[in-house]
Each structure stands twice: as C-alpha cells, then as structure tokens.
Design a protein around this nucleic acid. Structure first.
Lengths: 216, 216
DNA sequence: GTCTATAACGCGATAGAC
DNA sequence: GTCTATCGCGTTATAGAC
C-alpha cells in the first residue's frame, strides 16, 4: 500500500491540473484510512504514494488536519445524498424507520473512512472547521423534520417530546451500528448479532409509542 | 502535565520495588490519556515524567501496546466491580434497568481513560490479549444472566428472544453513552441532551415489552 | 506565480551494547 | 538502569525549476 509506485512521471504529473491531484490525494487518504484507521493516516506516506516529497504536499493541503477536514466535509455531503435517497414518501412508519436505520448502518459499512471521521473521534486534537461542522447540523435538522412529519401523519404520540423521541432513535441507531461494526464488520446490514436487530429495534420503539389501549 | 518533576531521587526510586513503579507508570498513563486521549499516549513522555530514560521503561513494559493491554485489563476488572455494586436485588424492573444504564454511563464518564480503551478503538493496531479479552465476556455473561432473571421474575416477555432484547438494551445504552460523551461530556449522568434520556429510554423499552392488552 | 526538492528541526518508538 | 543510534513522523525554511 505505502510503497506503491507512481504511475506517472513528474512531467506528466505537472500537466495535470490541481483539482485532479487533490482528487488523487483524497483517494489515497481514503484508501489508507480504510486499511489502517484514521488515526494512523500519514502525511509522509501520502506524499510517497503520490510520488512527491512530503513538503510538496503542503501546496495542496495546509496540514494533515486539513485533509481530515476535507474528508469530514465530503463525508457529510455524501451522507446527505445517501440518506436523501433512502427517505421515501410511501410506506408505513415502520418501513420508513427501518430504512433510516439500515441507511445509517449501510453508510457506516460502505464508507468506514468517512464514518470514522464523522461519527467517531479517532484523531486526537482534530476539530472540524465550523463551516464543515454546519453540514452535520443540516443533517440533524432534516431528520428532525422527517421524524416530525411521520409521527404527525400517523398520529403517533410517543408520550415524550418529539426531540426526545428523535434522540432515542439516534442513540439506538448509532449504538446498533457501533456494535455491529465492532462485532461483525464483515457481515452485511441485516445480518449478525446487532446488524440483524434493526427490525426488532424499530418494532420495539413503535410498540411503545403507538397509541394503543393499555390495561394499566 | 508532561513536564511534572519527579518527587523522588533516582536513588530513592531504586529502592522502591518493581510493583510500586508499575503502579506509577499506570497512573501516569491514565492521567495522560485523560488529558490528551488514548491515541496520543507517549512512551517517551511517561519515561520523562517518571524521571527515567525512555529505553528504561522497557524494563517494566515490553511495548506501548503492553501498557494499553494492562489498562484494558484493569478497566474491565474495575468495570466488573463497578457494575456489581450497581446490580441491586430490590426495586422494580424499571429501577433496576435505569441503574444499569446510569452505571454504564457513569463508568464512562468517571473513567474516560479506561472507557476509551475498552469500548472505543482509538489506538490503531492495538488488540487486547486473549486473556484480557476474556474478561469482557465475563461481563456479558453476567449481564445476560441478570437480565434473564429480572425478565423472568416479572413475567416480562419481550416477544423476541432474550438475547435480542439484551442486545437492544446494550446498543441503546452504549448509544446514549456515546452521544452523551460527544455532546455534553461535562454534564453529569442524568443531564444533557442524551444523558437526561435514560428514564425515557428505559420506559420506552419496558412499555414495548410489558404484557399489556393491546387494541390491535 | 506555482510546483518542486533538499535540508533540517523536534518529536516519537524501539533496538542493541554497555 | 544508561547511552547511542536508527527510523519514522509532521512541519518549516529556503531555494531552484517550470
């Protein structure tokens, strides 16, 4: 991985434009993180693989943290697209929520590099820029609105404020994903000790929150 | 933190026995992790603070990973004691489960150094030894038995296998804790966006799993 | 003006000889 | 326990090539 030969000569490389090189850097960083974890991403190793010297890399990124920040940004952009595609208008609440859970877990599994940087904190002292952090709030706002809609349209009253119901969903969803990645990272969403629990988890929530007659 | 003076001279230190020095090393490592995160623990810095040269540290630990492994072991030992104290025999299921949730979150907050190493994976390439890993299974077994007991004694049938109910509890509990630490690490258990959701979370689970008459 | 290389600094973990 | 030495890291300064 680290010792890969560059495929282009320096002269050829020079002709390529800046954007292409940045894409290369991002792709190399993603590959390395997927192989060895976000915390052990090496600035020097990226340069080596690109076929340039480490100092030259500073032409494209001001620091190693700037690369993390760019990955953070791209991750959230992709996540917004990813979840958008999985938010459907038809179907039952149950089906909609299951899709949300599966979507989150699938994103984590398909993009472990982005997921680490976005939802875990593997890099000491890395703080995303305020601009990119705002992207994550956009996602939360969207989910809040989505949940509000489906609860209202189905006449579901969790008995607690919508925001609390939302946060319980978020915590359960995140917890299932974390445990799935820790226990059966190789199994697809829907299988494994935790990855296979999405339906039961959503059913549990909806059972508790559905407006049914209770004996007590 | 890192530049603290040693309080004993080398000669005094020499007289102390090996176990005391190891205790010192562990305590210094814990302090450093609490300050800067597990991933940025520095072997050299530990030696500096102990008042010895880095290579001498190898007399006590074979590698940096060996220090992590020792912390992993101590963390699980403490966790077993910690939860044991919070598993009570009297009270309702609701109260017992709330205590379990609070206990886990409190452990994470009071021992962030151990928690990181035990439940997150902040150190690339660190894998706990099989011997110490077994400690974590002891904890799972104990929780399985505990949950089985209280479900049975209260005649609760979640409608799904006990192991699945257990894992939903674990996931929700872990998710709440992760989100609390990420959002309001400074707030005590019971407060904050996620730290204040334990009662609602447990209530949701028990509502769904309680044997009540339903209209559908 | 943009990209590159060389050299060097201070840090880290670790190995080996003493 | 020590010291010396090797190697990797991120980063900066500086200077030359396109």
């Amino acid at each position: 991985m680290e010792k890969g030969k560059q495929t282009l000569s320096i002269q050829q490389r020079r002709r390529r434009n800046r954007e292409e090189i940045i894409e290369d850097i991002v792709q190399i960083a993603r590959d390395m993180i997927q192989a060895d974890g976000a915390a052990s991403l090496s600035f020097n190793a990226i340069a080596r693989q690109l076929g340039i010297k480490p100092p030259s890399l500073y032409t494209y990124f001001d620091s190693k943290h700037a690369i993390y920040d760019e990955l953070f940004r791209r991750g959230w952009q992709l996540f917004l697209k990813h979840t958008e595609a999985d938010i459907v208008q038809d179907g039952t609440v149950y089906e909609k929520l299951v899709l949300i859970f599966e979507s989150y877990m699938r994103f984590a599994q398909e993009n472990p590099d982005y997921y680490q940087i976005m939802f875990q904190r593997p890099v000491p002292n890395f703080v995303p820029s305020a601009e990119n952090l705002a992207l994550s709030f956009t996602s939360l706002d969207r989910f809040t609105a989505f949940l509000h809609d489906i609860l209202e349209s189905e006449g579901i009253n969790p008995g607690i404020p919508d925001e609390q119901a939302r946060d319980i969903i978020i915590a359960l969803n995140h917890g299932l994903t974390e445990m799935h990645l820790a226990n059966n990272p190789e199994l697809p969403v829907g299988e494994g000790r935790y990855g296979g629990l999405i339906h039961q988890a959503v059913e549990t929530l909806l059972k508790a929150w559905s407006p049914v007659k209770r004996s007590e």
